[in-house]
Design a protein around this nucleic acid. Sequence first.
DNA 1: TTGAAAGCGCTACCAC
DNA 2: GTGGTAGCGCTTTCAA
Lengths: 338, 338
Amino acid sequence: MKKKISINDIANQLGISITTVSFILNGRAKEKRISEALVKKVMDFVQEVNYKPSSLARSLRTGKTNTIGLLVEDISDPFFSAIARSIEANAYQNGYKIIYSSTGNDTEKARELIMMYRERHVDGYIIVPPEGIEDDIRSLIDSGRPVVQIDRYATGVEADYVVIDNERSAYTATQHLIDNGYKNVAFVTIDSKQPQMADRLLGYQKAIQANGLNAVVEEVAYESSIQAMQQLSGFLDKQPQLDAILFATNYLCVSGLKAMAARDHQMLQTMGIISFDDYELFELHTPSITSISQPTEQIAEHAINLLLTRLAQTDTDKTQHKIELATSFMLRRSSLSK
Amino acid sequence: MKKKISINDIANQLGISITTVSFILNGRAKEKRISEALVKKVMDFVQEVNYKPSSLARSLRTGKTNTIGLLVEDISDPFFSAIARSIEANAYQNGYKIIYSSTGNDTEKARELIMMYRERHVDGYIIVPPEGIEDDIRSLIDSGRPVVQIDRYATGVEADYVVIDNERSAYTATQHLIDNGYKNVAFVTIDSKQPQMADRLLGYQKAIQANGLNAVVEEVAYESSIQAMQQLSGFLDKQPQLDAILFATNYLCVSGLKAMAARDHQMLQTMGIISFDDYELFELHTPSITSISQPTEQIAEHAINLLLTRLAQTDTDKTQHKIELATSFMLRRSSLSK
DNA sequence: TTGAAAGCGCTACCAC
DNA sequence: GTGGTAGCGCTTTCAA
């Protein structure tokens, strides 16, 4: 099979030095004014023996691995896997490979993973930061490794980020429910102080306040779908006056739908429902579920572009780029007046 | 920050040779009978300066990168992302990192990706093989790189694989529909000759035949959800006698559900429906959708174990391991007699 | 028990 | 225009 041919072999076979071969291979032939004939000869030979430079040796020498570390909360979540898919496509187009991991939103695990990536000499990072990871991100930046955060951001860290307009989206959704005649709108969220959730809460609260209504907020300590369903079931019992719910994430909404379906099928028909993050089958649900859809492709594109730009520039630009994207309101049945 | 300390620095600081340091670091102190005192001294110092060996240099030297290449059809598909998640967890536990890509079931792209992985000196491969990739996989195996295929397998290649019992699952599902009184059961599949689809078709056909019924098979040239929906809509028009459908994949089922919902909401209630691959919201659909659920965790576990075993053994064991797992039949409303 | 030194394959500085 | 050669940081054989 492939006898693992090296640059040395090429040079020997052709009776020239490896330096020359290296220059030609790296497209610096012109610059070094190497004759066209030689260039062609080398290129042809390289083709013929199907020589591929060892990226390992190159990386060892240059310190660059052309690898990007992607750290999401959970790769099996449709929102994150959609982003992963776009990032991957973009990265490969630019000669970068992705190595990924799921943090499970666990700070310790995320910390370990960052260490591993560091050891592996990952060139840049795209991270969905869990709480408490601030110092690690800062340390990455300080040592010259670019980091782009997505979906949320660590507070007090000067790292680029790409997020959505959470407050406005929540406000609009809440107002929409109110406009459709709902008077007792609850907000079901997770037990987290991270900015994306804080902003969604804020948007909800502002809309409720602007309309002189009462805010009802339920924080779910999300551990499993079943446990969340139970908590939500209890919540529905205790708040019989509710006529609408805004869910802060799609998996909370799914748990909520299950809780309602299990209790009382009628409730599902009359309750006003909106979910953050779209889900393919929301459209097919009865009633179809209105959602706030995040532009996954745009998020991925901005993130990778930001990162590639930083990777390309040699000087360490300290300005922090903050990108906030708009969401799409997917209007369906569940939020209309009943 | 971290001044990138090397094994040389350690040796210098401690006034010993790098050989000794290397032995200690690689746990060969006993074997080399290095004094306890020295070992402790070195370990302490390593701790203190937080030294991490360069995996790059080590890889260059040893030829091992502790990286596994994962090639799936589409990482944003819930089935594949669930598998990816499990594989990742397992791999990390064993000191391996994952680098992944989506092939989009495109042979050319898959081929390129395998080349890239090869250049990167990936130690082993877990692949969902598209059609026409046989030679590339064979070449990988021949050059001593272990490959485990999942979900399907390239015909005529002696590479390990982990799949499910497609024929039996399809047979059981079809028989279940017939048992519930459906007489005109169609099979909706994709335009592919790959073994997993061929086996599902076979199971369906055998069940139909065993019951003396007529087989109706529709092959969808899946390009997009919308296009699939249109084709299925036309199919439903042309086959008004149908009373049940077995879908070969979950995305086909989703398209089918959309097609039915768009045409005639009544049809959704009376048609017998079963889908391959479970989908979280199938349970919440009205009616809830019966499905054939694949054991993603088991698939991932077997795949990674197979691979790690091969990676561990030095001799090239030529016996091909073929693992066929059972599916779970998720009985819900859509397949019961109406 | 420990150390010297040869490479793994490549890039880039400096000579000619 | 082309070539010698010094490393990048590590493992491992051989010697002491």
